[in-house]
Amino acid sequence: MVRIEKLSKSFGNHIVFQNVNLELNSGKIYGVVGKNGAGKTTLFNCICGLEKYQGSITSSEGKIKDFTGYLPAEPYFFDKITGEEYLYFMCRTRGFKLHDVEDKNIFELPLKQYISTYSTGMKKKIALLGILLQKNDVLILDEPFNGVDIGSNMLIIQIFKELQRLGKTILVSSHIFATLSEICDEIFFLENGEIFQKKGFHEFLELENQLKNDISTSIDKIKKWL
């Protein structure tokens, strides 16, 4: 379990979020939604320890980064590295060697090719495969469905369900509300520096309606000049 208490983060005078309290339990999938720039990625970076923060993030299992897999929204890859080499590297960082890489290539990626030749979706898939191979207990996934084809999206959803069954904790952000509502046990809504809603499954529809209401002003505006 990961416990987040009084988490605050600011860049200079700009407060990204303050006094965030969350509890992430084993075998649960949590969604994070919010507008662009609401602080989702910063929140993920703080949990992973990639950003400094105020407050406390603890786990009964030990050092969070040692059992957490993080999929950044825009994964960075070295130029002239093949998919296979990247996967070897990811496993090596966790202290074990990768064997039978082709058997584990669930997304059927061209592993012998440079990642720089991959499409956006393929890059997302190789990054996701890397953290799956690490066998982490906690997965923090920033926009895992972006740019990925429909078939792979369905596969990713099934993978999440399987990981949930195995007792893993998943924290996922996405702008595709339908997908989040399908897989998540709870959805956190990040706005104005606060997580002000923690919706259970039965309340997702209410949250969706609220999001629709939020955009209605913009729709009215665009109707005037379009």
Partner: peptide
């Protein structure tokens, strides 16, 4: 031209900096 064929290197597969440096 999209060079899809990789240039083999004499390095360990997980040593990304050396592999990139050699290929470049």
């Amino acid at each position: 031209v999209n060079f899809k064929k990789r240039i083999p290197t004499p390095f360990l597969k997980h040593s990304l900096e050396s592999i990139v440096g050699f290929r470049k």
